[in-house]
Design a protein around this nucleic acid. Structure first.
Lengths: 250, 250
DNA sequence: CACTATCGTGAACGTTGTTTACAGTGAACG
DNA sequence: CGTTCACTGTAAACAACGTTCACGATAGTG
């Protein structure tokens, strides 16, 4: 267990954190920055406690004052990266709110792909095969503990807005497999119940296609057929199909 | 470097391997079997030299008589798993050659998904984020050294047969991005030049969708919306779309 | 000033991949 | 038949890993 920091006497979420709390938070941030550098440098494997500590001029055991274990540290690193990715997507999506929904969907999707290609180790950590001990893909939806939810929210907001303004050629869900309809109905309630089931189906399928296209490229599994600019065009082609499927005309 | 085994005096590929060669091959196989067990048990991390050696009643350094390094061992394990997967898909595809192409495409795709879900650690190793040192996703197309090519061939054969018998609503490639057309043309030559460029485009896009759907599920990245039988129905839905896209009517 | 929570270190333990020197075994050859 | 030598395994050792623990130094608080 990490030594529990002294609770701020006035208020655990005091607007004026004590000096100790500030330096402690700063050190935590520095640790995560160093971990991030190592992750970029050579993947999750290189994120080693002694390596991190070395960059800060400390020794490895000192890190246990800030994180329970290496896995917890990498878990927090995941959260931070999820947050950063959410920021990137939000910035792209809301850069110019006057733009059409189609443009905003396209620019958000492209931002996702570009981020993945420019941050392959991070993308692999968040969206690759789950690392045994790290981040149990928790069912927690509180954005404070599961930053992945914030990332999902960026897309969800977009889809909610889309479902309000743009009709989608979707069934009403009556013809769906009953088990699928049941799960989609549950999920529908979970996200506020504003999107029809058939539409959720369309959105989910779009998200799966988007994930697949980005992942297969970021992991290098299509290099046998596509390289360089060809992949760009391939992705443009996918996006064109998706906008049609979503009923986004202009 | 592994000690080079004594070259068979008569012929390096003699039909009657010497006794030493046989026991050596058997030990190699045993090592890979143990590695596979450990992989299933706890992912790539648990595939440890001492762990493998322990299962064979040996010590870790002995393994260096059979593999140059842990990475080389895991690389060979990858090849073996690729081979097994190719066998599984081939068996499904060619189980009853009299079946329609649509049925054979469906059964092959379902076999792929089922294999992935039943062999998640293996799937993660082959199709997840690349492990830094292991299997450089090589450009080698010789099935003897790159078994991944054999896996790809299963799909390729299916697509070639499909392109001979089933028309696909595809462009002739003239409207494609020139860089994309150029790369697809190169790839076309590489695979024998029998499939039109526009059709290759359709097939590639289908493969990407298939990969994406299976990967996102096998990695547990859609558990927020789908569980249990719902994912089955979702996949059936995808397959329905793909058969339409491929022009497979019955 | 004295107290105490906090932070960092050094040593240690068990584990990992890997190298090296050495010993046994068994097949091949004069 | 005896010798030779390639082959196969072991034991010991090394650096690096995550982790724990006992111990100082430090700095904020009463």
């Amino acid at each position: 267990m990490t030594h529990v920091a002294v609770v701020n006497p006035q208020n655990p979420a005091s607007p004026q954190p004590t000096r100790r709390e500030r330096t402690r938070a700063a050190t935590r941030a520095e640790i995560l920055e160093a971990a991030r550098r190592l992750l970029i440098e050579g993947g999750t494997e290189r994120v080693t406690l002694r390596g991190i500590a070395g960059e800060l001029g400390m020794t490895a055991p000192a890190l246990y004052r800030y994180f329970d274990s290496r896995e917890a540290l990498i878990g927090e690193l995941c959260n931070q990266i999820y947050d950063e990715l959410a920021d990137v997507l939000l910035a792209a999506r809301d850069h110019d709110p006057r733009r059409s929904l189609k443009k905003r969907f396209l620019v958000t999707s492209h931002a996702f792909r570009n981020w993945a290609l420019e941050h392959r180790p991070e993308f692999g950590l968040l969206f690759g095969a789950p690392v045994p001990g790290v981040l149990v893909e928790n069912s927690d939806n509180d954005p404070n503990t599961n930053r992945g939810a914030r990332f999902g929210q960026v897309w969800l907001d977009l889809f909610v807005e889309l479902s309000r303004t743009t009709p989608v050629s979707a069934t009403d869900g009556a013809d769906l497999d009953p088990r699928l309809r049941k799960h989609l109905a549950e999920y529908r309630e979970q996200i506020g119940g504003v999107i029809p089931i058939g539409t959720i189906m369309v959105y989910l399928s779009c998200w799966i296609r988007l994930y697949g296209a980005v992942a297969i490229e970021a992991f290098g599994h299509v290099s046998f057929a596509l390289q360089g600019g060809a992949a760009d065009a391939m992705f443009d082609n996918l996006m064109h199909e998706l906008t049609i499927k979503l009923g986004l005309k202009h």
